[in-house]
Design a protein around this nucleic acid. Structure first.
Lengths: 191, 191
DNA sequence: CGTCTATTTGAATGTACTCAAAAGCGGTGG
DNA sequence: CCACCGCTTTTGAGTACATTCAAATAGACG
């Protein structure tokens, strides 16, 4: 079964006809690593579901420093929610980190599907709620935990990601500089 | 019209019957300032909509340091989303900062309403999406901005809140100690 | 009016950053 | 297949932003 259908089946049950209808509204694309799927300043037109591979989204400060908002590998959704909802130019870049197969669902088709299949509105409500909870926790962690503790949490929560991305990406996600992250890592290993 | 109905009317249109049905599923309560509406360790049973007054939610580290997740005044929703969704004990306290009138919507009634009035599922999807966008932005701000810049943003975004809460609450929301916040404030005034 | 809490101020400390340079690693072309 | 180039990671020294601890002052509330 299509990964995206499995993903949706976690929370709602679609009939075969509904599944087909959904798939007919999506588009599959293949990207090579290092592709920029979305640039800051552009309007985000799609929700992206990762069949296979790895992507990240991030913003840039003063045209210099990158800050990673998140990673998405197999079975994850990614996008620029601000831009997608408002249809205004966003601040996020979406970059492909490994050769990937991605399912694209345009905003118009997504809204169409909410109308055609109300269960999908429920599905997206639920995953948005879960994402919100995760962001709230990460926010509180950034307010209350040290860099080491944030790294520990990242390791536990995303053990697979660590093996697949450069450590400067993890440093950025954690919220420290690559230099500091390197020192912190060797300090932690020594224990 | 009831504030909660006005709030919902921002995104979906309910018939008078639907409005009545919704109201019949809610409960209005009055709280005195300093009341703890929810304690960490309890299961959150309700979504809270503020008719009038001011609340905050926060967590506590090592039984010492508080970290403010957010404030909610007239027209805002508040709760412990993690606990509400999972029905497990949460980490958040919800405290009343000013004498308040609050509308309570229990989890069961909320799910019932999703079924009875699908438009409400849309409503909650939309406000959850908006909340997620706000949390993403706050997260990126915490990763990339200085304490002064975060305070500036807070002032612009919540000009009304500043006048109504202790500055240690703002310090905690921003992510600095009360002492540092005090020094930062006087430093900023000198310019 | 007195008590309790919030805010301010100061000094010492620590965590994380900046800048700079060296070492490591990966991909590409000759 | 090796050598080179560019980028990532490591390491070090100096710095800055924010914290901790302590004490004084101000403010709120009964």
């Amino acid at each position: 079964m299509e990964p995206i259908l499995q993903n949706i089946a976690r929370f709602v049950t679609l009939t075969p006809e509904e599944q087909q209808h959904l798939l007919s509204k999506t588009e599959v694309r293949h990207y090579k690593a290092k592709t920029m799927v979305l640039h800051a300043g552009e309007v985000c037109k799609y929700s992206y579901f990762v069949n296979h591979g790895l992507l990240r989204n991030f913003s840039i400060n003063d045209h210099i420093v990158e800050h990673v908002l998140g990673f998405a590998c197999e079975g994850w959704w990614i996008g620029d929610m601000y831009s997608l909802l408002s249809q205004k130019p966003g601040n996020l870049f979406i970059e492909v980190l490994e050769d990937s197969e991605v399912v694209l669902l345009s905003k118009e088709n997504q809204e169409q599907l909410y109308h055609d299949i109300p269960k999908l509105e429920r599905f997206f409500r639920i995953i948005t709620e879960n994402s919100l909870v995760a962001h709230q926790e990460r926010l509180m962690d950034n307010l209350s935990l040290s860099a080491e503790e944030r790294f520990d949490k990242f390791c536990k929560r995303y053990p697979d990601i660590i093996q697949r991305v450069q450590q400067k990406q993890i440093a950025s996600y954690i919220g420290v500089t690559p230099e500091f992250f390197s020192k912190m890592k060797s300090r932690m290993l020594r224990k």
